[in-house]
Every structure is written in C-alpha cells, then in structure tokens.
C-alpha cells in the first residue's frame, strides 16, 4: 500500500495529546494502523507528551499515598495484564475499525442513501460522527461542502476529486473551504471511513431534504 495522503501534524499531535473527539480518534487509529510514517510521527508526539509530563511541577501527594498505592496494588490479583494481541488482519478493516463494526465488511449494516450510495453510521461519542461509505465504482458522491472538518479514509477502491486521487490508506482532510465532487474510480466500489464534526450539506435539493432522515 503506497500512501500519499497522510494525517496532518495537528491531527497526530491532538490524538497523541488526547484532544480529539472519538470519531476522529477512530479515523486516526485506523490510518495509523495502515501507515508506518504516521505511526512514527505519532510516537514522536507522544515523546513530547513525556517531556511535558516530566516538566510538570510536583503536586504534593498525600502523606500515606505510597502505602495506599501498594495497598491498591496488593488488592488486585497479580496476574500480568496481557498485551493486546498483535492483529493478524485477514479482512479489510484494521483492528480499531473492526472493533466498532463488530467484525469485517460482511458485518456492516448498510443503509441506502440514494444513487447507489450506502452508509453505516458507527456509534461514537459526542463532538463528531463517524460512518462507513460505500460508493459504487464510477459513481459520484453528491456535490457537497463542509461546515466543519471532515476526514475521509479510503479502505478499498479509490476516489478522485478536482485536485487529486485518493487510494487505499489515503486520508483526505476537508474543511469549510473544500467544495468538491468526489467520484469513485471505475473498476472497484469505493469503501471509506469518514468522520465529521458537523453535518454535511449537499448542494442538490433532494439530498438536502433527505439529510435529516439519514444523518448525512
């Protein structure tokens, strides 16, 4: 997988710092699972976190805090916490995404949103929403702009818009200024993970009417 479109430093730093809404965290964790470059940059931002922690002044702990901490340690069974198992990816979805779907592609509960496009909203906390998109090969996603920030990570196939091509692993970062018409490439249906911190607005009349029903 050759990834050409990466996460921005702002997003990686915010993820390292723990400042992003859950839906964006999901896109970052999924992209980093696919991209060693962003994984390395993320690790660098975690080192910044270590340095920030190390520079913190010392807030005095209670007198008996160490004793209390040992009591806490002793009260828990001393079975070592197991490492999360390294993923052996057989399907399409990296582990963090598979966790949200409850499995791979065959477990996604798609709903049609018209023009052959299907989506599945994933359960995430407040601040932003995440969904999977299935766009038939050669099909245009209705022209839309964005009120907030939108991250779109390609998992299968590819899409093009006026400026560029986005293939598997690529992430597009769109904001208010982005007004575009992405088109899925011919040959293979395009499957994306998208997260936004505002509802999308479509420029066509019918999709706009449909918006409240479908949460797109």
């Amino acid at each position: 997988m050759t990834i050409r479109h990466h996460l921005s430093d702002q997003l990686l730093m915010s993820y390292a710092a723990g400042d992003l809404p859950e839906a964006f965290n999901l896109v970052v964790a999924t992209h980093v699972s696919l991209c060693d470059d962003c994984r390395a940059q993320l690790a660098a931002f975690e080192v910044v976190g270590g340095a920030v922690l190390d520079r913190c002044d010392m807030a005095a702990m209670g007198d008996e805090s160490l004793t209390a901490c040992f009591a806490r340690i002793d009260s828990l069974p001393n079975t070592p916490v197991r490492a999360r198992k390294p993923a052996r990816r057989n399907g399409l979805f990296p582990a963090p995404l598979a966790d949200y779907v409850g499995g791979d592609l065959d477990r996604v509960k798609w709903r049609s949103v018209g023009a052959g496009v299907r989506q599945a909203i994933l359960p995430t906390g407040k601040g932003a929403s995440a969904r999977l998109l299935h766009i038939p090969a050669g099909q245009a996603v209705p022209d839309h702009g964005h009120r907030g920030m939108e991250l779109t990570l390609v998992l299968q196939g590819a899409f093009r818009d006026d400026s560029d091509r986005f293939g598997p692993g690529d992430v597009e970062i769109a904001d208010q200024a982005t007004e575009h018409t992405p088109v899925a490439e011919a040959g293979m249906d395009c499957i994306c993970l998208a997260a936004t911190d505002a509802p999308l607005r479509f420029n066509g009349l019918i999709p706009r009417l449909a918006q409240p029903f479908f949460r797109i």
């Binding site: 723990g18 859950e22 999901l26 390294p86 963090p96």
Partner: peptide, 8 residues
C-alpha cells in the same frame, strides 16, 4: 470517552 488505539 472511548479511545480507539492503532493495531499493535
């Protein structure tokens, strides 16, 4: 909140 982590 939940915090999804990258694959190990």
């Amino acid at each position: 909140a939940r915090r999804p982590e990258p694959e190990e």
